[in-house]
Design a protein around this nucleic acid. Structure first.
Lengths: 334, 334
DNA sequence: ATGAAAGCGCTAACAA
DNA sequence: TTGTTAGCGCTTTCAT
């Protein structure tokens, strides 16, 4: 900065003014300064600036599985919105590990990010600490228990209810579920929707048909094997997320069980390939990009109002999910 | 920090020593300080520290498409390696836009990241500037033209050659290619491997069979339509990456063209679902996680040697790719 | 073994 | 309109 000032023949304060687009610098000097910055290939030191102004213009996002397209698409929404408002995005991957999630959050906190977007791996500790401190945070996808604000998600209960009902309406009676992590809202709510639809149809929920996974491909695979090796296997399966569906389909392939002829499959989460391979999957599609965009918008509102010293109340934003009917669901086999 | 010092009854220098694990602080004081930090929920200000020490312990990674699993899996490799060495990872998504890539790099530079991992969207400007400055950078996947070091990738030419040869050995003669962005090494090298195999088999490369995509799903879809609507369509197609393959499969589905009965498909990049849906895709599998891990290791070596003031020579690391034979390739239809 | 003080690169309040 | 200067929170010599 010194060098730039010297080369442009001005003081460093003038350079600073030019960088920050402050009014009150003559066009001539502005040009000189810009010229000098270009020739020196000068990049302002944002860490020094951040130290001074107390803001970093960086927001952090922590997701449980970066290889899951659901989160990367949400991230694109976050990113577009963040960029439009001059924020940089830092992404952290907790790998579904609450301890690592804590570590990442602590790291982001130390990095003095201006706000955090969190799809939690489970620790409600994060929720308690951050909200107590009134730190700008928005939860997405997974809403911590007891959290009644600052979150964006879909109506998981209704969505799972509708999915299960679709299975019922096709005539299925032996309907199994591959559940996700039950301590998470996305895990338990989807189970609840399933239960509701089953009860409404007066269908029993057999213990064997309630398979507990953890949202990972491997767990979906294992649950699929458990289910289809049963003496009386289900004729339809509701899978609680995309990764587990992948595992489920793998198990069906291994056991040479045709879908939907022998077993129908409906999956939470839609994905690029669901419609182009066989069987074309019936899915519950979430508005992934929009979830990210809305979450970032909410976070921006919180940050801005915090800057003004006031506390806004942002309720949970619930976006609609859509049922995409395709070929993996059909009336029970004969 | 002041508060912590006061609460622990020591000076801030002592607090600093404890935080950084410096020897020479009595166990008693250490305990007092740790206690104070815990009760105050104190998080060291990394931006102040960075300003002081001139390092951030942050490394930046820029990829052209975060929704592409190839990059997220590579990112997991990078992340594991980075974490193991005390580095935090910042991820940027250039969306295949060279201008935005420039912007992100400039941003990372201003954030004073200690190093950068780049899968470039095309601008060789980045290569020129960063290497001239001797800034620690490692390219992955896509190697800029003229770059002969500091990169990790697979042998794209051989891999594409082997893939095409597999098609030839099945008896195909009308073999088309959906190429990626030709200015990128991954685009041109895969074409070169294809050419080589075709020439070796004395097969002509028809102009219509050379479809130029841009690595996006949409381009793959369009190229697929172009190809299969030809008066004399190909009997086999080599697709240069996973996203374009998705688009290609969509076009086949739309045109109700069975694969592999009417057309064989072989795809660069393997993915979770390639083996579990029908048709099970024959692919060229890259060691994605390992690419990320090795790239990060190389970057660490460069950073560390730069810290010691020396310039180390890191050649391009070429990892092997594997052909996964599955059901989407078969002898030409009858 | 512990503390006092200088300074990292920048911004902002104030002076000229 | 432009320049001078204090200080953001930390680390690190150098005294003690």
């Amino acid at each position: 900065m010194h060098d730039v000032a010297r080369l442009a023949g001005v003081s460093i304060a003038t350079v600073s003014s030019v960088i920050n687009g402050k009014s009150g610098v003559s066009p001539k000097l502005t040009a000189q300064v810009n010229q000098a910055m270009a020739t020196l290939d000068y990049h302002p030191d944002l860490v020094a600036r951040s130290l001074k102004v107390g803001r970093t213009n960086v927001i952090g996002m922590v997701v449980p599985d970066v290889t899951n397209q659901f989160y990367t698409e949400a991230m694109r929404g976050v990113e577009d919105e963040a960029r439009a408002h001059g924020y940089l995005l830092i992404l952290g991957n907790s790998n579904e590990d609450p301890d690592h999630e804590q570590h990442l959050l602590s790291m982001l906190f130390s990095q003095r990010v201006d706000g955090v977007l969190l799809a939690s791996s489970g620790s409600t500790a994060a929720y308690d600490r951050l909200t107590r401190r009134r730190f700008p945070i928005v939860f997405l996808d997974r809403v911590p228990h007891g959290c009644t604000e600052r979150a964006v998600t879909v109506d998981n209960i209704s969505a799972a209810y509708n999915a299960t009902k679709h299975l019922v309406s096709l005539g299925h009676q032996r309907i199994a579920i591959i559940a996700g992590k039950l301590p998470l809202s996305t895990g338990s709510d989807r189970v609840e929707g399933y239960r509701k639809a089953m009860q409404e149809a007066n269908l029993p929920i057999l213990e064997d048909f309630f398979q507990r996974g953890d949202f990972s491909l491997e767990s979906g695979h294992q649950c699929g094997l458990n289910l289809m090796k049963l003496p009386v296997p289900p004729t339809a399966i509701f899978s609680s997320n995309n990764k587990m569906t992948l595992g489920l389909m793998r198990s069906l392939a291994e056991l040479s069980i045709p879908c939907p002829e022998q077993v129908s499959v409906i999956s939470f989460d839609d994905f690029e390939w669901a419609a182009n391979f066989s069987p074309r999957l019936t899915t519950v599609a979430q508005p992934t990009y929009e979830i990210g965009r809305q979450a970032m918008q909410m976070l921006l509102r919180i940050i801005h109002s915090a800057n003004e010293g006031l506390v806004v109340n942002e309720n949970i934003l619930v976006l609609p999910a859509e049922l995409h009917l395709r070929d993996s669901t059909a009336p029970p086999g004969l």
